[in-house]
Design a protein around this nucleic acid. Structure first.
Lengths: 101, 101
DNA sequence: ATCAAATATTCATATATTTGCATCTATAAA
DNA sequence: TTTATAGATGCAAATATATGAATATTTGAT
């Protein structure tokens, strides 16, 4: 037996975790680079953003773990890409909400 | 003088802060209650969600500080409401992305 | 002026997140 | 099978966030 409140609480947790995964300047930058179905390797992102390789990998891991990104290994490279293209909406929405005032 | 990278970094920070403000189960719950232009007082939210008054006030303060909510005092009450109705999109988008798998 | 209700703030504790070095693993090339 | 490249992971220090009890502030009513 389980009640509505718990389900709701679980979904709130999930939603919050997904959002928390995105809510970081580096990770938003990553998402912007992956918009439109693009696939990039860890090294490409690490060079593109000018941050440490391990830091990059950590961030990508968080995004993947929370269901924001997927990854596919191809030889020595691992390509990361958006799991739900819809998620670009969030970034877009933010951009609209943060350009004024 | 200032360069593109810095502006961009600032906007990323702002976006991340706004998203970080939202990325919390309690705060997502608050937003859901405020969808559609609704205005609620601190007490109403605190009772609705069954959390401490001071905790509620903290969360509302964060949402307001980061530009997600506005507030208007009316007598002894302070009403909180969404600053950008668009922000409901984020919650909706999340809901779509978290109901499957 | 006093009181009570609504909200905000301070403070402390507990917990989580970020970063990067060092290291480990996986794969491809020589 | 050795070596180089790409990526992941363990760990620790620094920093940030969450929560709630206690307290302060604001406002309206008496």
């Amino acid at each position: 037996m389980f009640n509505i409140q718990e389900i709701d609480a679980d979904r709130l947790e999930t939603a919050a975790n997904m959002l928390k995964a995105i809510a970081h300047p580096v990770r938003i930058a990553i998402l912007k680079h992956l918009e439109g179905g693009k696939k990039l390797t860890v090294t490409e992102i690490h060079e593109l953003l000018g941050i440490e390789q391990s830091t990059t990998s950590h961030h990508l891991g968080i995004l993947k773990d929370k269901g924001v990104l997927c990854s596919r290994r191809e030889g020595k490279n691992t390509y990361y890409y958006l799991k739900h293209d819809i998620l670009s909406q969030i970034v877009d929405c933010l951009q609209r909400c943060t350009c004024e005032e």
